[in-house]
Design a protein around this nucleic acid. Structure first.
Lengths: 149, 149
DNA sequence: GCTTGACCTCAAGTTGACTTGAATTCGTAG
DNA sequence: CTACGAATTCAAGTCAACTTGAGGTCAAGC
């Protein structure tokens, strides 16, 4: 099974080498050996990284994600817990759907000030009720701009 | 029309006074006057803050949000642009849906290692294809724990 | 008229997720 | 065998979005 060095992993995933080193540092991924100085990764790391990207997208912190997978990258969560995560995401989907509808309404509504429009306020209230129903959500820090240099 | 001071706004929205001051500092909301030292807010700020919360939830930065509303809080975006934002959110919904399905599958799949399961990989690939289709998304920084200690 | 508590300002600190830079080390192609 | 480029380490820097702390100011109630 061919080993990859960090540049290849970076190229394949769009994640910068510096980020990959950081991920390794915090134990999110692991390199299997060294070729000289160079880290060698097994191809399965690509899959793990997909999973990580997905988790980040869903608003989980790297810490959360590290908690979801064992250090080997195999999901190490009990099934009920996974279902719970899925439910949380479904919640989030509901909120975003409300937001999308609100925006679509704003785009179509002829009222001059949306803050006055009853439909708008209804949508807004619905969205916020969803939100406050779950007390607190963490969203991870910004990452912009792929492509090193 | 009754004015609110910062503590009342905080109580009504769950946003800490310090955050509200920060929002005012960056021009996201505005207080209308002072009572002694104390900022006085108009009730409409509550609605604006709902909007802001919603935008944050959807993954927009405060900067993005500030760009979406005029300093008075009235949405100041062209309709096509609003539609575009709505479409972006729809994208995000799709991604989250894929993630949710992936998790649900993981919870139900009897395979010992999901990294081997073809269904899993298919879901994963689908999710990642969606993701890379839009090159780059910003997600805002973490906020946990309401309630000023 | 004085205390009290909510508010004020301003500077500095925090957290998460990386990035950047400088100085160094390899392995490979020529 | 030497130069090159890709990788290395480590410390420090960055960014967004706030929070914290110190020290100060009011207005209202007793």
């Amino acid at each position: 099974m061919k080993r990859l060095d960090i540049g290849e992993v970076a190229a394949a995933t769009g994640i910068r080498p510096s980020a990959l080193r950081y991920y390794e540092e915090i134990g999110l991924i692991a390199s299997v050996s060294r070729h000289g100085l160079r880290r060698q990764f097994e191809p399965r790391v690509l899959l793990q990284l997909k999973l990580i990207a997905l988790g980040r997208m869903a608003g989980f912190s790297l810490d959360d994600i590290a908690g979801m997978f064992g250090s080997d990258g195999v999901p190490a969560l009990s099934r009920p817990l996974i279902r719970q995560k899925a439910d949380e995401i479904e919640q989030q989907i509901g909120e975003l759907t409300a937001l999308r509808d609100t925006l679509r309404h704003v785009a179509d509504c002829p009222a001059p000030s949306h803050l006055e429009c009853p439909t708008f306020r209804r949508l807004l209230d619905a969205a916020v009720r969803r939100e406050t129903a779950r007390t607190s959500r963490r969203v991870p820090a910004g990452s912009r701009g792929q492509g090193e240099a």
